[in-house]
């Protein structure tokens, strides 16, 4: 019985296997050369009241500390958080807020929002909680991409120069959505 007929296919399959190993090693090396182990969070910030400015900024700076690549897309009144003048004048609403200890009929009186806002700011200061501006600065310093939606900048009559240095303008829903698709965490605030 000849062994030629059996060794030839074995040699061929060995060659095949070696070729496959080579191929796999090359592909593994390629994968290792471009690791995609960065994690990403995208927050959409739509609210511009004093209380609602905090969650996106606190989560953003915290996620950055966890090593996440973070984008906060600010749209509608969320733009005010990034607005150089308006961010320091964010207000707390008295009406429709059951945690404000006055009835809605009184909460609706002129000047009541200023009163509740002043009380909230006092508490923020007393508890050494960072201000909105400090959290914006901190977020930018820690590499968070704070984005201002271009459509709502135009809609609300703002100007691109109205925003803090480091804020990204000229972005829209498509770029936000593309980032959300790639993100591990997506939040609408």
């Amino acid at each position: 019985m000849s062994t030629d007929t059996t060794t030839e296919p074995e040699d061929a399959s060995l060659e095949d296997l070696l070729a496959r190993v080579d191929d796999l090693e090359t592909r593994l090396a390629d994968l290792e050369a471009t690791p995609d182990d960065s994690q990403k969070m995208v927050v959409v910030a739509t609210k511009g009241t004093l209380d609602m400015a905090y969650p996106p900024l606190i989560l953003a700076s915290t996620a950055a500390a966890f090593g996440y690549d973070v984008t906060v897309f600010h749209t509608f009144w969320g733009l005010d958080i990034l607005h150089e003048e308006r961010s320091s004048a964010l207000k707390l609403s008295s009406v429709g807020n059951p945690n404000v200890p006055v009835p809605n009929a009184i909460a609706a009186l002129p000047g009541m929002d200023e009163v509740t806002t002043r009380l909230m700011r006092k508490r923020i200061a007393e508890n050494d909680v960072a201000t909105v501006e400090e959290l914006v600065d901190l977020s930018i310093e820690t590499g968070v991409d704070l984005q201002a939606c271009q459509m709502t900048i135009d809609l609300l009559g703002y100007d691109e120069d109205d925003f803090f240095d480091g804020v990204t303008t000229g972005v829209g829903a498509a770029s936000a959505f593309r980032e959300m698709v790639e993100a591990d965490v997506q939040l609408l605030v």
Binding site: I58, S61, T62, A64, N127, D128, V129, A130, L138, T142
Partner: peptide, 14 residues
């Protein structure tokens, strides 16, 4: 000391 969330974590990270 004296600083609130998220500062302890963020400053530790830095």
């Amino acid at each position: 000391k004296g600083q609130s969330c998220p500062m302890p974590v963020v400053e530790t990270g830095r």
